[in-house]
């Protein structure tokens, strides 16, 4: 019969790890080692307890998740990256044929193919991010049900991972533009190109904020996710993706300005094609609205993140 005394005679592993000096120093000073502080696990948490410092400590994990997504899509598959090339090209081609050739929609004088490609790339990034982040809890329930890490790590890493595809598509856009330039079509890259990172940041912010908002609500209402897929499709038509704002009749133009995504889409076209109607002020308003959406999303997300495992 085994007895308690046996605990001390358990087989020890060969390499008994000496406590390294650095580690000892870390342990001695509670300020350097947050691990030794008391953690209190309580039922309720404030609406604004976002634990951003903790999120910052998980930055390596965000990087590794992005790396994982990158490797799992691009390792050993030829179609992985090719897909990001084929999809926007074909969609753009269809848009060009349907909306430009058949419907005869205006493209503000820019080459239709390039016009639709810019809109398509920006919109694809936004809608993919929104879709992915809104499924955070459901898609990762196995992982989230076992380990705790800051729950925003996953949606943030998704928004960053999608930048890879966005970058590839932007590269193709530039390649197509070079082809156009060689064919003698005059192009108008403007200084707004330098604002591209900010435009992307705004798109990412809306997608992340909206995504985690939906994510928080879908833990309670599963059927909301269908509504979102449908809603994003509708949103594309009320956002100037396949038409310029200038094509709207003057008395309806104010509706476009209600949509905070409008200046971003127009901004992209101003940057790469030199066509579009957007002012820096509109963009700034869009940026501020984005921060508000992000804040509301984070509040809702913080409310449910601790108990979503009980309902998913």
């Amino acid at each position: 019969m085994p007895s308690h005394g046996e605990t001390t005679t358990l087989p020890t592993i060969e390499h008994n790890t000496p406590v390294s000096e650095g580690h000892a120093r870390r342990e001695a000073d509670p300020a350097l080692n947050p691990a030794l502080a008391w953690t209190v696990i309580t039922p309720a948490r404030s609406w604004f307890d976002w634990r951003l410092r903790q999120l910052w400590r998980y930055r390596d994990l965000i990087g590794l998740f992005v790396w994982r997504d990158f490797v799992s899509v691009y390792k050993q598959t030829i179609l992985g990256p090719a897909w990001h090339v084929i999809r926007p090209l074909i969609t753009t081609l269809i848009f060009t044929v349907v909306f430009s050739r058949m419907a005869g929609l205006s493209t503000d004088g820019a080459p239709p193919f390039l016009f639709y490609m810019v809109g398509n790339i920006a919109w694809t990034y936004f809608s993919t991010c929104l879709d992915n982040t809104s499924k955070t809890f459901v898609a990762n329930s196995a992982l989230l049900g076992k380990v705790y890490f800051h729950r925003l790590v996953i949606p943030i890493s998704l928004v960053i991972s999608n930048l890879i595809a966005f970058g590839i598509q932007l590269g193709i856009l530039l390649a197509v533009m070079v082809v156009y330039a060689l064919a003698g079509v005059s192009l108008h890259l403007t200084s707004w190109v330098l604002l591209t990172p900010i435009l992307v940041l705004i798109l990412a912010g809306y997608a992340l904020g909206g995504g985690i908002m939906v994510c928080a609500l879908t833990t309670r209402y599963r059927d909301l996710s269908y509504l979102v897929t449908f809603g994003v499709q509708l949103l594309m038509y009320v956002t100037p993706v396949i038409y310029p704002v200038s094509a709207l009749p003057a008395r309806y133009r104010w509706t476009a300005s209600l949509n905070p995504l409008t200046p971003v889409l127009e901004g992209f076209r101003v940057a790469f094609l030199g066509v579009g109607t957007v002012t820096p002020r509109e963009l700034a308003v869009s940026f501020v609205t984005m921060l508000a959406v992000l804040a509301v999303g984070t509040i809702l997300f913080t409310r449910v993140e601790r108990t979503f495992m009980d309902t998913v």
């Binding site: 309580t42 705790y148 601790r306």
Partner: peptide, 25 residues
């Protein structure tokens, strides 16, 4: 699950000194 902060308690609390790691799976 409550100890590893996967889900929150309904009432009461746990005070934990230091970092918790779980080998749940």
């Amino acid at each position: 699950k409550i100890l590893s902060q996967v889900t929150a308690p309904t009432s009461g609390q746990i005070k934990v000194r230091g970092r918790i790691a779980s080998l749940l799976e």
